[in-house]
Nucleic acid binder design. Structure first.
Lengths: 196, 196
DNA sequence: AGCGCAAACGGACCACGGTCCGGTTCTATT
DNA sequence: AATAGAACCGGACCGTGGTCCGTTTGCGCT
C-alpha cells in the first residue's frame, strides 16, 4: 500500500472534476478573449461558455485577475523556454551582451502583444507572478556575467522598468513612438549601464 | 458692453453652482480619503458627503479615476513649485547633477507617499496627467544641461521608469528593500546613464 | 422683473465583480 | 458495495462604478 508521500510543493490532490473544470474554464476564457478582447470578457460569460456556475470560476481562480493571470501563464511558459533553452541570441550559447540586448527586444514585444492581458491580470498577474522573478533572475545573471559591479538586484530592476507595460503603452499608443526606436533606446541604456 | 473674448485655453464659463459643487466634492473626497483611505471611499459616499447627487460627481469628474486624479493634482502642484522655484538642491541655483539626484529622491518619496492615490487615479491620473510630462520635461532639461547625447526623451523615460509606483511598491512592500537603498540605486543609475 | 434655454442636478436604474450557503459529487476506507 | 465526509458546484444575492433622463437652476437678454 503506497502511502501518499506528501511533497511540499504539491497540493494534496485535485479532484478529477475540478481538473476538468479548470481546463474547460481556461479554454473558454481563451476563446472569449480571442473573440471579444480581454476587456469584453465577463466572468458570467466565461462561466456560461464553460458550462459551469459562476461560483466555480471564483473558486478556482479567486478573482478576475487570477483567471487572467492563469491564461497569461500559458503564453509565458514557452517564452521562458526560449530564454532557457532556445536558439541564440535569446537562448544560451551566445555572449551575455548579445543575450541581454535580445532579451530586451523580445520582452518588449511580448509585453506589447500581451498588454491587455497583463493589464487585466493586474497586480496578481503583472508583478507578483512567476514571470517577473524569472526575468529578474535572468537579467541579474547576465549582468553578473558581464562583470558589472554594484547593487545588481536593483540595477536589474531599474533596467527592466522601462519595459513595463504602462510605460510602453504610453510611448506607443499615446506618444506614437515607433517600436524600433524604443528598441534602440534599450540597447543604448544597456550599454550605458554596463558601462563599456 | 465688454464682449467675452474667447481664449482657446479656457472653457466658455463655469456656472457658479457647478464651481461650488466642484469644490465641495473635492473637499469631501479629501476628507473621506483621510478618514477611510483611498480604497474605502465610494462614489456614493463622496456624493452624500458633499450633499449632491451621484450623477453630479460623474458629470464633473467623469469617473472615479478622474476624481482621484483631481485630488492628486492639488498635492502635486506645490511639489512642482518646489522643483521650479524652491531651494536647492531640488530647485534651481545648483548644478544639474545635484538637482537630478535630488529630483529622484524627492519623486521617489512622493510616489510612495501618494501610492494609494496614484494607484486609485489609475491610467487617467497616473500617466496622462500633467505631472508626468512635467517630470519628463524637467529630466530632459537636466540631461541636456549635463551634456548627455543620444535619444534624450527616451533616455529620460527610462531613467524615471524605476520610480513608477508599481515598481516601488513591489520593492518596498513585497521585497522589504529599505528606501535608502533604492535612493542609492537611483544615484548609481544616474551616474551610469550620464556616463562620467 | 420676466423669459427662454442651455447647463447642471439627482436618484432610479443597469452591469459586473465578488460572496455565500444548501445541495451534489467524488474519493478514501472498510 | 456501502458509507462518510470532504471537496466541489451552482446560482441567488450584494455592493459599487457608471449611465440616463426628467426636472430644476443659474444666466443673458429684453
Amino acid at each position: 500500500m503506497p502511502i501518499e508521500l506528501p511533497r511540499a510543493d504539491q497540493q494534496p490532490q485535485e479532484r478529477s472534476d475540478a481538473a476538468r473544470n479548470r481546463e474547460a474554464l481556461l479554454a473558454a476564457a481563451q476563446r472569449l478573449i480571442d473573440h471579444c478582447g480581454v476587456d469584453g470578457v465577463t466572468m458570467d460569460a466565461v462561466a456560461h461558455e464553460a458550462g459551469v456556475g459562476k461560483g466555480t470560476v471564483f473558486r478556482r481562480f479567486g478573482s478576475r485577475e487570477g483567471l487572467m493571470a492563469a491564461v497569461l501563464n500559458r503564453s509565458e511558459t514557452d517564452w521562458q523556454g526560449s530564454v532557457i533553452g532556445g536558439p541564440p541570441p535569446l537562448g544560451p550559447h551566445d555572449d551575455p551582451m548579445a543575450r541581454l540586448l535580445a532579451f530586451g527586444h523580445s520582452r518588449l514585444r511580448l509585453n506589447l502583444a500581451h498588454a491587455a492581458l497583463i493589464r487585466g491580470a493586474g497586480h496578481t498577474g503583472a508583478r507578483s507572478y512567476a514571470a517577473v522573478s524569472f526575468s529578474a533572475m535572468h537579467v541579474r545573471h547576465l549582468l553578473t556575467a558581464l562583470g558589472v559591479d554594484g547593487d545588481i538586484p536593483l540595477l536589474a530592476t531599474a533596467l527592466m522598468a522601462p519595459l513595463e507595460v504602462v510605460i510602453l503603452e504610453q510611448q506607443v499608443d499615446h506618444e506614437q513612438i515607433p517600436v524600433g526606436r524604443i528598441e534602440a533606446a534599450w540597447d543604448d541604456l544597456v550599454r550605458r549601464v554596463v558601462c563599456a
